[in-house]
């Protein structure tokens, strides 16, 4: 009986795996361990699996649960650097090159500076490839509102990235001046 439930659960989860883990990685970046979040959400989903009405929308359920957990979960205060290192190590073990890793870390770090809903909409749309209608359903909003959030999120993200880029150029120029 237990095996059957586990199998059913894993069967339903299989299609959601990539998107769900990526989502957890993005929203938990620098705040909590993604593994903790994934485990928490999956445990909860496992116990409530029979109660989930729309099992065809299991990914939506997992994403909503992860979102709620990331906000309300009583998190252990961990060293931020430790979390970042864990994340980097996991990706490195997946043969992700250093440049891509830096890009991902820059993106996730910048995303944390965005307003929560804009950040969420951008992750779902840009990284996970959800349609606006799907995001609207997950967030309990309308397509129009999601479109606005994504648009504003992009603008803000661009601005933040440019600022960081300019700061980087300034630092490198100064370093060059000092070294020369």
């Amino acid at each position: 009986m237990v095996d059957t439930k586990e199998k059913k659960f894993l069967k339903a989860y299989m299609d959601c795996h990539e998107a769900f883990v990526k989502y957890c990685s993005a929203i938990s970046y620098g705040k909590m361990d993604a593994e903790d979040l994934v485990q928490d959400v999956l445990l909860s989903a496992f116990h409530n699996f029979e109660k989930i009405k729309k099992q065809d929308q299991f990914l939506h359920y997992l994403i909503r649960a992860a979102k709620n957990r990331s906000i309300s979960h009583l998190r252990k205060k961990r060293n931020k650097q430790e979390l970042l290192d864990k994340h980097a190590n996991r990706l490195t073990s997946k043969e992700v090159n250093a440049e891509t890793l830096l890009d991902i870390q820059l993106l996730y770090k910048t995303l944390t500076e965005l307003p929560e809903q804009q950040k969420d909409a951008l992750i779902l749309f840009e990284i996970l490839g959800f349609s606006m209608a799907e995001i609207a359903e997950i967030q309990g909003s309308t397509s129009g509102a999601i479109k606005t959030k994504i648009s504003r999120g992009r603008k803000l993200l661009k601005k933040l990235l440019e600022e960081q880029h300019n700061v980087g150029i300034k630092i490198s120029t100064r370093l060059k001046t000092i070294l020369l």
């Binding site: 990526k22 990284i127 992009r154």
Partner: peptide, 20 residues
Amino acid sequence: NGIAERLFENARNTPPEFDL
């Protein structure tokens, strides 16, 4: 959004942290 698009592209193509 040149920089942002590149970053998103990398994030999309990166495998998940944990395997199945």
